[in-house]
Write a protein that binds this DNA or RNA. Structure first.
Lengths: 219, 219
DNA sequence: TATCTGCAAAATGGATACATTTGCAAAGAT
DNA sequence: ATCTTTGCAAATGTATCCATTTTGCAGATA
């Protein structure tokens, strides 16, 4: 429950958006006073916000040392993709039957938009909206939260890869999206499960081939 | 990284232990001032502690209303068991090859101890130690964290069921533990995966038959 | 009797000030 | 020259005080 009239939530929301958008990158130090000044508040709500974002998996807080934008090693990132390969098929299966015709149409529209879109920021947003919409029929609260958290923590590396691959590199991805929509529209849960697992798996294998995505900027 | 010389962590650690031990039950209101007085601190570190425990899934915090010990509906609890059915086999597989002979011996010893043990509190502790040890060979940090979180949030309902079932009701559980140890000792990952998935699944189906476990005490 | 209104008590949210810890840099010793 | 120690500056951790929100009850009204 995120209420915008509470400072800690406002700060958390804005910082979350900035991290997901890539304005803050993994490993970057977060100073409490800096944020406090930026958002015209004291350090107390800033600290609350950092804890909230820690729950989201976007920030790491260490006692007496401070906070950093959460970062993953290559192995950790690949591990999270393996987890997604196990969980998202389950989530999609639970969602499938409850998606409305309007939602199915919107899924197809999003897949088409993504294909036409040329910039990475647009792709990131549409891709996320597409997949989350495909899960929106599921009543599973915990599973949704876990999956969303995994999307959060891997978002930066997905973008880094998209930047490297470029638009032509995403052609297969767009095809997969179309096939996924088709399976979902047929309400074919087995096929849909296979598609989403394969979709995630292919991305994992591609990411594994690009260690430069996980290189630390400096240090 | 939990450092005991920071008040917020001390409070979080002790409250976590109390919740896991069952001294605080799901749905119970947590008042900041109460905790502050109990632990001889101001409300600031208490608030931090509540956020930390929220990350653990043990506490739910709502703006301007307060904090409660996290509680699950029947459906949510069963959902978490389904998630465990997908994730713990993966975790066990990753762990299997790296377990030492000494750890295998300890696993068998724990299974035997559990069988001999007659009180529920002892069972809860030994059972948790047993399964966590079986996963200790895995390098997967995120997966371990997710699984541990799921154990935390479902702990109360597992205990409630153990109390209802009583010692004789756990006979099959003990047998499953022995079979699991055997499969692990043979380094048979396929068999071990099947065993752990079935073990979790059976508990889920038993829990599903006991709605009284999820009854809210009052209100 | 049931419902609504409004005030007061209690609990949470936040700001300021102070305490403690950490890390780095410069000085000293081996 | 390298390693250790010491001390200071910067950042985090906590306490106290005040503001805001919520909640529950008392009283009025239909």
């Amino acid at each position: 429950m995120t209420s915008p009239n509470v400072a800690s939530h406002r700060i958390a929301d804005q910082l979350r958006a900035k991290i997901l958008a890539g304005s803050w990158v993994p490993g970057e130090r977060i100073r409490q006073e800096e944020l406090a000044e930026e958002y015209q508040a004291s350090r107390i709500p800033v600290r609350e916000a950092l804890r909230i974002l820690e729950t989201d998996g976007l920030v790491q807080v260490v006692s007496n040392q401070g906070a950093w934008v959460a970062s993953l090693t290559r192995d950790e990132c690949l591990e999270q993709y393996e987890i997604r390969e196990r969980l998202e098929p389950l989530l999609l299966r639970e969602s499938l039957a409850n998606l409305t015709a309007a939602q199915l149409a919107k899924l197809d529209e999003l897949a088409t938009q993504m294909q036409a879109n040329r910039d990475v920021a647009g792709f990131m947003q549409l891709d996320r909206e597409f997949h989350m919409l495909s899960y929106s029929g599921a009543p599973n609260t915990t599973l949704k939260e876990i999956v969303e958290r995994l999307w959060n923590t891997t978002q930066h590396y997905r973008r880094a890869y998209a930047n490297i691959a470029g638009s032509p590199g995403l052609d297969v991805t767009h095809l997969e999206h179309k096939l996924l929509v088709e399976a979902i529209t047929r309400r074919d849960s087995e096929d849909a499960e296979r598609m989403i697992a394969g979709h995630i798996r292919r991305t994992r294998l591609l990411l594994a081939q690009h260690p430069e995505v996980f290189a630390t900027p400096t240090a």
